[in-house]
């Protein structure tokens, strides 16, 4: 069940430092939304505030609204743990649990939450998730081996399998392919195209071609200068952003004429 997310007037702080200012954006369900922009402009910060991962850092806080299918995620009485169950996340660096096997990593979302599930159901779920992440054929013979024995690209796909195994509504990906070779990158891009049938996907990337290839909508973040807050400069359909952007800054960034 993909869900739509409406963000309005979002300000994101690290202590007293305003890192991202005044973001208003709508993220469509069953689509891939790409976020691009120079380093340090607040893409990761914004992404992490969607599933309330931002606030796990000491002093970090958020003002404004993030509404998912009518429910304000920052409303009073909303448990961040519940939010994170509905909005999964894949990190820039693959981070499988080193003490667990490949199987246990995929099952981690359920196991760690003490969900009661029969062995055969769990087997099925693990296989489905690994197939979903395009990893099944590579690991089906060594599900019991430690996850740290996989290559970087396989680990990243394992993390994707782990994230989709809990069946979230939204999947956030922070530069999921930045440490991967072109083949693994392609595998993950294909995967996103498949996954968007079921999930709402938001991806941060530094790779313009990737954004152009996989996304329907693209948001461009920029920063006026060091110490200034990052802002969402432009949010438009990907084709428009890459052919005929509204903003001069977007065009400069995309064509590489960036200060």
């Amino acid at each position: 069940m993909a869900k739509r997310i409406d963000v309005s007037d979002l300000n994101i702080y690290y202590g007293s430092f305003l890192a991202v200012q005044d973001v208003t954006v709508s993220i469509e369900p069953r689509s891939v939304t790409a976020l691009i922009g120079p380093s340090g402009c607040g893409k990761s910060t914004f992404l992490r505030s969607i599933n309330r991962m931002h606030e796990v850092l000491p002093g970090a806080r958020v003002e404004g609204k993030v509404i998912m299918d009518g429910q304000d995620l920052y409303g009073p009485g909303v448990d961040p743990v519940d939010v994170r169950r509905q909005i999964g996340m894949v990190f820039q660096r693959p981070n499988p649990f080193p003490t667990m096997s490949i199987y246990d990593n995929v099952a981690a979302g359920l196991r760690l939450n003490n969900k009661k599930i029969s062995k055969s159901d769990l087997d099925g779920l693990v296989e489905r998730s690994l197939r979903g992440a395009n990893l099944w054929t590579e690991v089906k013979d060594r599900l019991g081996r430690p996850a740290s024995g996989l290559s970087g690209g396989q680990q990243q796909r394992l993390c994707i399998a782990r994230a989709i195994a809990v069946e979230p509504d939204v999947l956030l990906m922070d530069e999921p392919a930045s440490a991967l070779d072109p083949i693994s990158t392609l595998a993950i891009e294909d995967l996103m195209t498949e996954l968007k049938e079921r999930f709402t996907i938001v991806i941060v990337t530094h790779n313009m071609q990737q954004a152009a290839r996989v996304s329907e909508q693209t948001g461009f973040f920029n920063i006026a200068g060091a110490g200034q807050p990052g802002r969402l400069i432009e949010f438009n359909p990907t084709e428009k952003i890459f052919s005929n952007p509204d903003q001069k800054a977007t065009e400069d960034y995309i064509s590489g004429r960036f200060g």
Partner: peptide, 29 residues
């Protein structure tokens, strides 16, 4: 214990205390 592992567990909707018991302590065992 790398912070990334804690974040990985949080992102799966695992509460903090359970993250400590099931992820942090086994990793540091």
């Amino acid at each position: 214990v790398p912070n990334e592992l804690r974040e990985a567990a949080y992102a799966l909707g695992v509460p903090k205390w359970r993250t400590i018991v099931k992820v942090v302590i086994p990793t540091a065992m």
